[in-house]
């Protein structure tokens, strides 16, 4: 019975603690508005193929970035009284 309790404890404990990555809300990608110069009349009339839009700005933060775990606590420099 004690062995069974221990097993259950181990399985429960393995799921606890630490930051759960699922808590972070995924960063939504905004659809970039690209005003820029308008299409030519030939593109609008479809006598020539319409040009595809500009490649977007390169982001500082990768879309799939997940924040790292917090670093370990420092030693307090004093003992538990």
């Amino acid at each position: 019975m004690n062995m069974v309790k221990s097993l259950v404890f181990v399985f429960l404990a393995s799921g606890c603690g630490g930051q759960r990555l699922a808590e972070l809300k995924p960063i939504e990608v905004e659809v970039e508005v690209q005003p820029g110069p308008a299409a030519t009349p030939e593109e609008l009339a479809r006598t020539v193929p319409p040009l595809r839009g500009l490649a977007r700005r390169l982001p500082l933060v990768p879309i799939e970035l997940v924040a790292p775990e917090a670093p370990a606590d420092p030693e307090p420099g004093f003992k538990d009284p």
């Binding site: 404890f9 404990a13 393995s14 606590d73 538990d80």
Partner: peptide, 17 residues
């Protein structure tokens, strides 16, 4: 397992974040 339940990894008992 018991020790991991009482303090998450990297946390010190005398340190509050």
């Amino acid at each position: 397992a018991a020790s991991s339940v009482s303090a998450a990894e990297g946390e010190h008992d005398l340190v509050d974040r």
